[in-house]
Write a protein that binds this DNA or RNA. Structure first.
Lengths: 201, 201
DNA sequence: TCGATACGCAACCGTCCCGTTTCGTAACCC
DNA sequence: GGGTTACGAAACGGGACGGTTGCGTATCGA
């Protein structure tokens, strides 16, 4: 965003249209959600889709990455409530939420960007992590930590590793599955129970 | 590859240069490894980098995806030997191998393609899974299955979930870490031990 | 009413890429 | 040597896109 908010210094002349701004950002997000990579996003296509002149875009953002950063910033990620009675219950609910999200093309493609474009757009990736990843990570960390504190989990549990195992297992299933079979409906339970119980006899 | 190998039907005229073919494929792989997405790969750029005329490329592949598929097919993935004495040992070696690979930009970017371009290039993604993912997955599955059979692991272990937890945890650490700190050197051990032991008291 | 700014639209030129064709040369078999 | 095919280089027309500019209109404050 380039708009200046210096005190109450309202500029003379016609004010910028908030509707146009929203249309631009929506168009950008939609195109990303449809699989267009950041590098292939064209200002012209965004403008056309938003029903907006290219000028209107260049007036606000000086380059594409700035636009995308602002677009991602508007994504409010809904989070499942994690105030259940047990760690197991909260973990299952968290994993089920993840699984649910992979059904939305929008979420999938946005996650792809976070996974793959971080090499080329570090600024973008950092912003994305802050907005979408961190809140979820914090929520899960709180659940595990609560379990450790309450004695429901072992005291020597490595919280970060536990989070990685839970989250990573679900990502692995949803992204690297060999065939396109439906995922089993009880996948969250199975992951949670097995990681909680461990593999040893 | 379009070259026909019908019996010993050697064609008249000048034979195709294997050197040119190798140069083309190397150039394509290099560009991918440098972060160029498949969609942005241009035949012209590949030709220039390979020191080859565009004609030489079009003579062999009719489209870009075919070329990339052939390029990926040349990637021989070195696999760690997993014939140790215990499941724990093999798992740690496997995870260490994964961690090692993330240090090579080449491997990282190619994994990115597998993760993110599968939506737009399903043919490509399938081929990649077959070449790079499946052998590793099979190796890890064998390790876990051996553990179950020998009694080293619980009999009711869900092998697929266990694999997902182990692999997913490492992927999660290497790709979604918040800061760019170095990963702890004993990460493979920590992941293996915690997933083997579980979280419950 | 007037000046200032934003708007959508269209056009501009330069760049990149595609897929094809043409050129002169090189390599192979008979 | 003659026939055939591949080679690298260059150029083609066509298209997409970038970033800029000018146009006529719309919307604000003074």
């Amino acid at each position: 965003m380039v708009t200046e908010h210096l005190g109450a210094a309202r500029t003379p002349g016609r004010p910028r249209s908030e509707k146009a701004e929203k249309a631009i950002i929506d168009a950008a997000i939609d195109m990303i959600a449809e699989g267009t990579g950041v590098a292939e996003l064209s200002i012209e296509a965004i403008a056309a889709r938003a029903g907006v002149g290219k000028t209107t875009i260049y007036r606000r953002w000086s380059n594409k990455e700035d636009l995308v950063v602002d677009a991602l910033a508007t994504l409010k990620a809904p989070m499942p409530e994690l105030e259940g009675k047990s760690v197991r219950e909260d973990v299952i609910r968290y994993l089920a939420g993840m699984q649910q999200e992979t059904h939305h093309r929008r979420t999938r493609c946005i996650m792809n960007i976070a996974l793959s474009e971080s090499e080329r757009f570090p600024h973008l990736a950092e912003r994305f992590r802050e907005i979408a990843v961190k809140p979820r990570r914090d929520a899960l960390r709180a659940v595990v930590q609560r379990g450790v504190d309450s004695g429901e989990l072992r005291a020597d549990v490595d919280v970060e590793v536990a989070m990685a195992a839970l989250t990573g297992a679900m990502i692995f299933f949803t992204k690297w599955r060999e065939n396109d079979d439906e995922l089993p409906a009880d996948l969250p339970e199975r992951i949670a129970d097995q990681i909680l119980a461990g593999l040893l006899p």
